[in-house]
Amino acid sequence: MKLILTQQVAGLGAPGDVVEVKDGYGRNYLVPRQFAILWTKGAEKQIAVIKKARAAREIATFDQAKEVADSLKGLKVVVKAQSGKSGRLFGAVTAGDIADAVKAAGGPDLDKRRIEISNPIKTVGAHQVTVRLHSEIGGTVNLTVA
């Protein structure tokens, strides 16, 4: 099955890429979650629009990505959330919450889709979160949930 990615998919590609995947993976996972659209000649024209939007919000150069990674290292990010007596949160801290907290702490404006949370953050305390800044550079955010 030939698809055009509309969002970043780990291990598959970036928005605007045309990929060939197995029918079940495309039909049952990528298309329903709007990670991809079916490839047609008409949809081929949308690739330029998707790539243009991606270029506008992407960190352009390797050096710029290094600067952002360095600025994230010294940043103290605090997210406030409601929790029970045992320190367990009512819900979880999302990538959007983290992106907002980084900006509020004086850090760079991050795209929430670039924030990778390996395990759901559901407890109060210190956590580390990875941010994909460039294809070769990743940054870490030291996060405190209060």
Rank of each mutant, 00 (worst) to 15 (best):
G84A: 09
L75K: 10
A36Q: 05
L89R: 02
D100P: 02
D109F: 00
I59K: 02
A95F: 00
A53Q: 15
V49E: 05
P108I: 09
V79P: 05
V102Q: 02
L30I: 10
G84N: 15
V78R: 11
T40P: 07
L38H: 11
D109L: 12
V102G: 02
A104D: 12
K112V: 04
K85Q: 13
K45L: 08
A99P: 06
L110E: 02
K85Y: 04
A101E: 01
G106H: 10
R54Y: 06
G87H: 08
A48V: 14
A69I: 11
T123H: 10
N28L: 08
A95W: 04
G125W: 06
R33L: 09
G84I: 03
K112P: 12
N28A: 07
A101C: 06
T40Y: 06
A48T: 14
A48F: 08
G96V: 03
K41R: 12
T61H: 07
R54E: 09
A105K: 06
T61A: 09
F62N: 06
K52L: 05
I59Y: 01
I59E: 03
A104N: 11
R57D: 00
L110P: 09
D97E: 09
K73L: 07
R57G: 01
A55H: 06
G87K: 12
A69L: 05
V68W: 02
L89A: 08
V93N: 00
L30C: 10
I117P: 04
A36W: 00
I47L: 05
F90V: 07
S83N: 13
A60E: 13
S118A: 10
T61L: 09
I98V: 12
L75Y: 03
V77N: 04
W39D: 12
R113N: 13
V124I: 14
G87P: 12
D111Y: 08
Q34T: 12
V49A: 07
G74C: 07
K112F: 06
F35C: 03
G96Y: 02
F90R: 04
K76H: 10
D97Q: 14
D70S: 13
Q34D: 13
G42R: 15
A55K: 14
K80P: 08
R88P: 01
E58I: 01
V31F: 04
G125A: 06
A53L: 14
R54D: 07
A43T: 15
Q34G: 04
L89S: 11
G87L: 10
D100S: 15
D97T: 09
I47R: 06
K80Y: 08
R54K: 14
G96K: 15
A65I: 07
V93H: 03
A126H: 11
Q46E: 14
G107F: 03
R88C: 00
A43M: 09
V49R: 11
A56P: 05
A48W: 01
I115Q: 05
D111I: 12
I117D: 02
A99I: 07
A60F: 01
V93F: 01
P108F: 08
I59H: 01
E67H: 14
S86A: 09
T61K: 11
G125R: 11
A53R: 15
Q64G: 00
G87W: 10
D70F: 05
T123S: 11
Q46H: 12
K51S: 04
A65M: 06
G42H: 14
K85S: 13
